[in-house]
Simulated assay, not measured.
Amino acid sequence: MDLPRKFTIRESSHRIHNPFTSEKLAALGQALHLAPGTRALDLASGSGEMLCTWAHTHRITGTGVDISTEFTARARARAAELGVADQVDFVHGDASGYVADEPVDLAACIGATWIGDGITGTIDLLRQSLRPGGMLLIGEPYWRRDPPDQNCVEACHARTEEDYRSLPDLLERFGELGYDVVEMMLADQDSWDRYRAAQWLNIRRWLDRNPDDELAPELRAELSREPASYARYEREYLGWGVFALLGR
């Protein structure tokens, strides 16, 4: 049980595995007015940057769950680096079936709602770990502009245009599910650039070190096409944000 190797190669230098900068992550923590001792659960926690930095800054506690052995190891190392290993722990496992032993104050899935087959299922999963009155955090893409054709749709990692909503439609969907949107922090084109361009550098450095690896032809082809595709489609049409929700 692990992520495909090409994914960890692509994001080998990333602390945040989404188009979010450390500044935006810090701003979100400030905006949520996190109280010391807040207990959090982060499903698909990646390299643990959210839990580790918020534990350091806001003195929260919590658990992260991720399917990647490499990212889980990085998360534990980051907790030790920031001196918060006694506040947060990281579990290698399938987040799609994980429910906390005790109710938490904050339950999050940032950019990985496929663990619940979409927003509805992921919210249902998170809600099983959330105390009454607790807060959900959902990270999700949306259309900044209507995609002009199927090439754009697929370049934005969707099968059909209906896989994503516009931002207003996404916010309305949270309401239909019984939640008030009480905060949002959106990626911008610069944070998208920082996320995606770092992938290209990671791939190139890996290719230079591993020219004969079985993955080299696939990653070489990806590096050759992705910068222009990203600039033509993803950068212009795809938005992404983290949304804080409270049940009605």
Rank of each mutant, 00 (worst) to 15 (best):
C109A: 09
G116P: 05
R144Y: 06
F243M: 08
G134Y: 10
L3Y: 15
L207K: 08
R205K: 10
M184N: 08
S129V: 01
H17T: 10
A108M: 14
S129Y: 04
L3W: 14
Y237A: 06
M135D: 01
N151Y: 11
A27S: 13
S229V: 15
G29K: 03
W206Q: 07
Y230M: 09
D190W: 11
E162G: 05
V91L: 12
S45M: 02
L51Q: 04
D101H: 08
A31D: 06
L201F: 03
G247M: 12
T63R: 12
E226P: 00
A108N: 01
I16E: 06
R165L: 15
A27Y: 07
P103W: 04
R39A: 04
H17D: 02
V84Q: 02
G46W: 03
L177P: 09
R145Q: 14
V242F: 10
D208H: 07
E222V: 07
M184W: 02
A79D: 04
G241N: 08
G111R: 04
G121K: 06
A155Q: 12
Q150M: 12
R144A: 11
S96F: 08
R39E: 09
G62L: 03
E218F: 11
P147S: 09
D212G: 14
A216N: 05
P148Q: 11
G134Q: 10
R127T: 10
R145G: 00
S47F: 05
L246I: 14
D42P: 03
H92G: 00
L223G: 10
R15V: 01
R159C: 04
A26M: 08
N151V: 07
N202F: 01
H58P: 00
V153F: 09
C152Y: 11
D146K: 15
P227A: 13
A187S: 15
T38E: 03
R10V: 08
N202G: 06
S47L: 01
S13M: 02
P19R: 11
Y230P: 02
H56S: 11
Q30T: 12
L223V: 10
S47D: 01
L43S: 04
A55F: 03
A95Y: 03
V242A: 11
E214G: 05
Q150K: 12
Q30M: 04
A108C: 14
A73L: 06
G46A: 09
R76Q: 13
R74V: 00
H157R: 13
V182Y: 05
G83S: 02
P103E: 02
A75I: 01
L246D: 09
E140H: 11
R145C: 01
S12R: 14
E236R: 14
F90W: 03
I110A: 02
E81Q: 14
N151H: 14
P19H: 10
V182K: 06
G93W: 05
Q189A: 10
H33N: 09
R165V: 04
L219R: 10
R144V: 11
W114R: 08
D208E: 14
A85F: 01
P19W: 12
Y98V: 00
L25Q: 08
Q189V: 04
G46K: 10
A27E: 12
D101I: 00
V182H: 07
Y230C: 06
P141M: 09
S129L: 07
Y142E: 06
D89K: 11
A155Y: 11
T69S: 13
W54E: 00
